[in-house]
Amino acid sequence: MTTPQPILRVEGIHKTLGDQLVLNDVSLTVNRGEVKILIGPSGSGKSTLLQCLNFLHHPDQGRIWLDGREFKATSRRELCAFRQQVGMIFQDFNLFDHLTALGNVQIALIKVKGMAKAKATHRAKEELARVGLADKMDLYPAQLSGGQKQRVSMARALAMDPKVLLLDEPTSALDPELIGEVLAVIRFLASAGMTMIMATHQIAFSATMAHEFLFMEKGRIVERGSPVHLLAPGATSRTMAFCAKINELSGDLGMAERRCASSSSALADKPQGGHGTT
């Protein structure tokens, strides 16, 4: 990948919810194959930003380009076409409760893409196998664990062949022992060159594959840079301070800085701009 190819670019996004300015002049660009990580305290606007990127929230102001074309939400048809190209993973999975794992992956292929049922079934099975759930496709959401549900929701999004995948704290609703299986899928996607923007608190994990960290606070991106840079030993970045605080809260008092530092030193041999998985 020699010249960066912008897939999704937003400029000057503003969003007010109620009487609160949730997003204040946010701009970012994601190039093909890049992984961008949104971090920051809760209420900083990460989730709203992601939902603005596929118009689940309509931004009050700002411009959005997808794959070089500016998108204006003028008609519903265009809006639906746009959303098909921007996959979304939610914190609480949001699987369709009345459909099996297979049905969940299949339904948009059939109803939105107009795919024939046999073809959609084939594709859905492929996607489920890719996230390691080939043997679970006839189970309903109520019969799946949290980690399995999240993997189904990833298969569902990926089946639509999105140009970019938005992940809104994909592991935050999971029990600790289930986080790993979801992270493994995300890591696999990153290594396969999937373009992703992910809001997460899994800083050590995301540092191993992120091209850029975007630190949000009060509706703004207040800091951005490569994890190597922001989490370098002795760095005084906001990201570092936040990371230390998270680790502190999870009980590693004193260990915090070393933790952050070690996760970033693991990156030392990671080629910039590539998407290896260390």
């Binding site: 939902q51 596929n54 689940l56 519903r76 639906c80 076409a81 959303r83 098909q84 921007v86 996959g87 979304m88 939610f90 609480d92 999975f93 949001n94 699987l95 369709f96 409760d97 948009a108 109803k111 939105v112 929701s153 569902r156 999004a157 639509m160």
Partner: peptide
């Protein structure tokens, strides 16, 4: 959430 998920998949 399910309604959001459906819309995110491009459903009208």
């Amino acid at each position: 959430g399910q309604i959001k998920a459906a819309q995110a998949l491009g459903m009208s």
